[in-house]
Design a binder for these strands. Structure first.
Lengths: 215, 215, 215, 215
DNA sequence: AATGAATGAGTATTCATTCAT
DNA sequence: GATGAATGAATACTCATTCAT
């Protein structure tokens, strides 16, 4: 009895089906938004029967949740191999920041539909999901804050309310991602976006008098 | 002719009803979110009959739209009397920015429920409303951009991609408002928030070498 | 504003609607059984919209429950004015029993559909309803038992396990009602049924030797 | 020729599967009732695949039918070896009755789950099954009736509507079985139940004057 | 023969909208 | 104009049944 083989093959097929549903859901959510999407839209897009959906997910919320976790995994993977040595100089501080920023930009852009969807609708599902999403935002903010604290402690950054600035930075990233996806920066590449953001965050907007008046 | 008087009184009562429905809608939307709110929730909160809703609004979308316009009006009013004389110095540039920022912070905070709701859910209603909301965001960004352009032109601000920075600034404002409302800044007052934001936007995070090297 | 009048008229109409739904439910349940009956069958029979059902009842179980209570009320009403003076002689004991029996037979027969339905399906709805129904059966059995106990105490009845006999009597009543409704007693009237039951319960089946051997 | 042996073994295994499914069905039906039982409940209990069910039974109704027939067979077996010599005296009449009663009590109690299930739900499956069940009840009633007729003819029993009394007796048996299973007779053994039933059926409840008046 | 993933017909239920009073 | 009971279209979800492996 090749039941072992059978079992494995079945499992693989099941997993494939699940992924195909996730892809369809992502596509349809991106097109119509979470709330205007029916289960039937998803299964039609996936080309499977109505009942098949319920074999893999409890309801619309759960497939959305699964998409959310998928994105989190990808984000985590992107930062997996990131150097963790604390910066030794102002220059290293800045380059580490730029690196983190660039990685975030990349993972967001590589998962554009998913990320855009989750950023836009994640907090409109229900109270619990709202908390989940805000928890993730907060985690990022806290990561940023501890990095800022380090910079302040070592004198690479000026004294500041790092809690406030960290949240501002996260908001800035999200806002720019959103604008970028909305096509409001025609002709701008990601590197420019990153460079401008980092420049703003580090140097601010103010004209630098030193450089301008060398004499 | 009492019919004239009667007519006016009726009209007033009608207007009062409309406002009461708008208030209820705002309250209920804020509590449950747009998508989880039923017409019956709104009329129950307002203490009027189900049919009465339809005498004043076509559907849920329309009352949401009306709330959106109400907020826009209040924002506009806040900026009505703002001085429009272009800044003549770097110092004026900075203070004008802070003033604009503070006004925005005030109007958002005075309409906390409404603003929070619209920022969170405005783009999840439908495609058309999404465009409307993004149009408003864009307007703010453009306003900010033209102000930045002016700063750059006069040498108050360093050269930069003002289109990008403007959107970043708008995102930053929204993110901080959101965090503030979510209670993530316990013990922080609005002025501190504004000051930190302006400091970040103008000076960046970097330690100021001038101060460090006085000689 | 005749809102008072309006309210009353509305309430009356609502009550009428509710009764019409109960009647339809009773009719359809009787025809198809509880489990094979759809909400749509009931509303079609009542000639009202699908949503109207849910304005009056939570679900199919609840309308069944309401029918059950309706029957209980009618049974209670039938026994409302029953004489409660304890029997003073064997003859009174027997006639009081016959009277109770007859009343039960009447109320069951007057609510044939309802009673038949509830006796047949009442215990197949769910565990909780089963307990409810059995509770009612038990109440009747206990009533019968206390009556029997009295008869035994006064010497009108022979010593016996009145708990067992009481339940047997209740079962006997139900079985005969069921057979009667199923048309298994063609040409028999209710009085005959009652008389035979009482004779069986009181005298048993055995030939009476005294009477048979007068000489 | 090993194919012969193989065939037989296969057949045995098939039969074992069938029985295991029947047992599971009986168990699950008894626990949840027919209508609340899903095919999946049965196959899960039996530890076989969903498809296997359909290799042995057409649908839920058919497995219920099979259980019903199983019970009938057991009942028939119980009465197989029963003496068929007509009673020659009042005493034999009574003892034959008690014997039949006791056998019925035994077979019902030995198949408690099955019997309880079929008595409770048998008539709620569909119209056809209802007729089948009522046919079986009727058969029992007719058997009882012909026995009663014989008793009346020979003077062992008083003249009575034997059709009515027979059905009453059957109802009484069922009611007591039901009460017994429901635990409403704590501490009572089956023999007591049988004895009380026979006493009620033969002698009724009335106090026996003979004993009271010895002279 | 056994399996269990896939299927979709069948239903309960919700809720925006209407309209008689 | 206000009301709220009535409505039924729209949808989520279940579960018996099939069938490829």
């Amino acid at each position: 009895m090749p039941s072992e083989l059978r079992k494995q093959r079945d499992q693989e097929r099941t997993e494939k089906r699940r992924l195909s549903l996730l892809e369809s859901a992502s596509r349809v959510f991106a097109r119509q938004g979470y709330h205007r999407t029916l289960i039937s839209d998803i299964v039609n897009d996936a080309g499977v029967g109505q009942g098949t959906f319920y074999r893999h997910f409890k309801d619309k919320r759960q497939i959305f949740e699964a998409l959310f976790e998928l994105l989190l995994q990808k984000v985590a993977a992107q930062f997996q191999d990131m150097e963790s040595r604390p910066p030794q100089s102002a220059e290293e501080f800045r380059s580490a920041s730029r690196d983190a920023y660039r990685r975030m930009a990349q993972v967001l852009d590589q998962n554009r539909d998913l990320a855009s969807l989750l950023l836009r609708e994640g907090r409109t599902i229900d109270a619990e999901f709202q908390r989940t999403v805000e928890g993730v935002f907060l985690e990022f903010a806290q990561l940023a804050q501890s990095f800022l604290d380090l910079g302040v402690a070592r004198g690479f950054a000026r004294p500041m309310r790092t809690d406030i600035v960290a949240q501002a930075i996260v908001g800035l990233v999200i806002a720019l991602a959103d604008s970028w996806w909305a096509g409001r920066f025609p002709g701008v590449d990601i590197d420019t976006l990153v460079d401008e953001s980092v420049a703003l965050a580090f140097d601010g907007m103010i004209a630098i008098p030193n450089t301008a008046q060398p004499s």
